[in-house]
């Protein structure tokens, strides 16, 4: 048998979730989330292992994973900054923030810093429009952003490393 890449924790989490759905295929999204939480991104081998676990064709997992923007099919930096530039955020300066972040990190939107510390992405509406501009820093929202608070946040992450 092939060596498993996903941890026992992954399989335990899926076993917990399995009885909650009448169809095993419903585990696809939760399993992709769980696997990404472990690996930071979703390499093909992981997708193949998930397909085997759930019992679907590998292609089906790939179809699903590529549909949703949150699944990283390429490696991302340790801190993934996803800055919303949709209407409400853009009305309150998101574009300027993006320019600032690009300059500060020395990468273009969509890129990862050479040391793998940061990935900067543009995000569609994050659903926190009344506290715009907003970005996601890994799993957390940072709201009411301005250039100062973004600068402070990036500095803080750099120092924590």
């Amino acid at each position: 048998m092939k060596e498993r890449l996903l941890s026992e924790k992954f399989y335990e989490a899926m076993r917990q979730k399995e009885p909650r759905y009448p169809d095993r295929k419903a585990l696809i999204l939760p399993s992709l989330h769980q696997a990404q939480a472990e690996f930071g991104w979703l390499p093909k081998e992981i997708l193949a292992e998930i397909a085997e676990y759930i019992g679907v064709h590998e292609a089906q997992i790939r179809e699903v994973a590529s549909f949703y923007t949150m699944y990283n099919l390429k490696p991302v930096g340790k801190m993934h900054l996803k800055l919303c530039t949709n209407v409400a955020c853009c009305l309150r300066g998101a574009n300027e923030l993006m320019e600032f972040a690009e300059k500060k990190l020395g990468v273009k939107c969509g890129e990862t810093t050479p040391d793998g510390a940061f990935t900067l992405s543009e995000e569609e509406c994050l659903g926190a429009c009344t506290t715009a501009p907003v970005m996601m820093a890994n799993d957390d929202y940072i709201e009411n952003l301005d250039i100062n608070s973004m600068n402070d946040f990036i500095e803080k992450v750099k120092h924590e490393r």
């Binding site: 979730k17 909650r20 759905y21 419903a26 999204l29 939760p30 992709l32 989330h33 549909f67 949703y68 923007t69 949150m70 699944y71 569609e124 509406c125």
Partner: peptide
């Protein structure tokens, strides 16, 4: 009744 929270993954 059981309630399950199912997370989306980024798709309007």
């Amino acid at each position: 009744l059981e309630i399950t929270v199912h997370r989306g993954a980024g798709a309007y």
